[in-house]
Each structure stands twice: as structure tokens, then as C-alpha cells.
């Protein structure tokens, strides 16, 4: 899993290097969202019933940018607290397409990341004939898919974003991915 983490970091740095913004050098947008997370099949249920809260901070760079559309790459750090299941820390990078309709926009992102899980469920490893407790943290690959919509003001944007992400490999009863969903609300603005 350390390898996955290092590969994710390397890829993130790589895509940042590739996705330079020739139009506005030196301007680095900062994205901050808070979100409600659940383990769930894709749906819109129960975001607000006993929400598991998280925060995500990231930036994005652009492969191309016109008045009406952006092709972009994000890099994000996030954390969520899921009661009785896990704390999740993650780094992700997503490829995205954003379309503007005047000041309103929608975007679609897909990406991959590394999820560091701090499990709430005690873990045990077999040693000889016995089982010994082991540490609560372990890593997983984190595929993501997001659909967002927002409004651009003069100096910042506000938006909401529906995200599906997985932790894989999972494996119980042959299920390869444990699916999560998250509903984000956030803002994006430029850092000097």
C-alpha cells in the first residue's frame, strides 16, 4: 500500500506539472468543501440523517480554458469521520470538464487516489494458532467520480458536488469495491 501512496503522490505532481495554466501564470485556485459521507449505493438518500462529516482542500490546473469550458486537473487532500466505521484521510487527483452557462457552471470529474483508513473495527492477524491485535490503519485505492454545479461570482465560485468514491480492493463475498457517496458544498477562489 505504501507503493500505491507513493504512486498517487507522483502522479499528482506529474499531472500538476502537465496541467499548467498558460493564460494566468501564478494564479492558483484553492477549493475548500465540507461534505457528508456515507457507505451507499449511488443515490441521494440520507445525506442529512446522522451525517458523517468531512472536509476537502484542493487546487486545480487547466489543460485548456476558454470562456465557456475548462479542461482541468485537480489535486485534493481530504478527511472524513464515519462513526463506527473509519476515519478516512485521502489524496486524490481528478480529470475534469467544466461547462459554463453565463455565470452558472456544471462539471464532471473522474479520478484516482490513495485512501488511508483508520478503522473503527478492531483488526486481528493470525500468528501461529492465535490472533493478535494489529494497527488500525491501512491504505486502499480510491477511485472517484463527481458531478457538480455552481455559480461564479467575481472573485470566487460557490458550488455543490455529488461524489461517488470507492475503497478497493474490498473483497468480502467477492465484492471488489466498497462504495461511498459524498455531498459537498464548497467554494473556489484564487490565491495570490
Amino acid at each position: 500500500m505504501k507503493t500505491i501512496f507513493l504512486v498517487t503522490i507522483a502522479l499528482s505532481l506529474g499531472v500538476l506539472a502537465q496541467a499548467q495554466d498558460p493564460a494566468k501564470p501564478g494564479k492558483l485556485p484553492l477549493t475548500i468543501t465540507v461534505f457528508s459521507e456515507s457507505v451507499s449505493m449511488p443515490n441521494f438518500r440520507n445525506f442529512f440523517k446522522h451525517p458523517n462529516l468531512g472536509i476537502r482542500i484542493g487546487t486545480e490546473l487547466y489543460y485548456s480554458r476558454t470562456e465557456n469550458r475548462h479542461l482541468l486537473q485537480t489535486v485534493n487532500l481530504g478527511y472524513y469521520y464515519h462513526k463506527d466505521l473509519q476515519n478516512g484521510f485521502y489524496i486524490t487527483s481528478e480529470f475534469g470538464y467544466r461547462r459554463f452557462f453565463n455565470n452558472t457552471f456544471v462539471d464532471l470529474t473522474a479520478g484516482l487516489g490513495y485512501l488511508l483508513i483508520d478503522s473503527a473495527l478492531p483488526r486481528y492477524k493470525k500468528t501461529g494458532n492465535d490472533y493478535q491485535p494489529i494497527g488500525s490503519t491501512f491504505g486502499r485505492i480510491m477511485p472517484t467520480l463527481g458531478l457538480g454545479a455552481g455559480y461564479k461570482f467575481k472573485t470566487l465560485s460557490v458550488f455543490s458536488r455529488y461524489e461517488l468514491f470507492g475503497e478497493m480492493p474490498f473483497g468480502y463475498k467477492g465484492v471488489p469495491v466498497l462504495p461511498h457517496k459524498a455531498l459537498h458544498v464548497g467554494t473556489r477562489f484564487n490565491l495570490k
Binding site: 463506527d84 473495527l121 478492531p122 486481528y124 493470525k126
Partner: peptide
């Protein structure tokens, strides 16, 4: 109760 949720030989307490 315990289960190997991640199919990696590690058992997790799933009593809840």
C-alpha cells in the same frame, strides 16, 4: 463475530 472483509487474511470485529 469476525470477518475477513478485505480478503487479505486480516479479521475485523463485525459484531455491530
Amino acid at each position: 463475530g469476525y470477518a475477513d472483509l478485505y480478503n487479505n487474511g486480516i479479521l475485523m470485529d463485525v459484531t455491530l
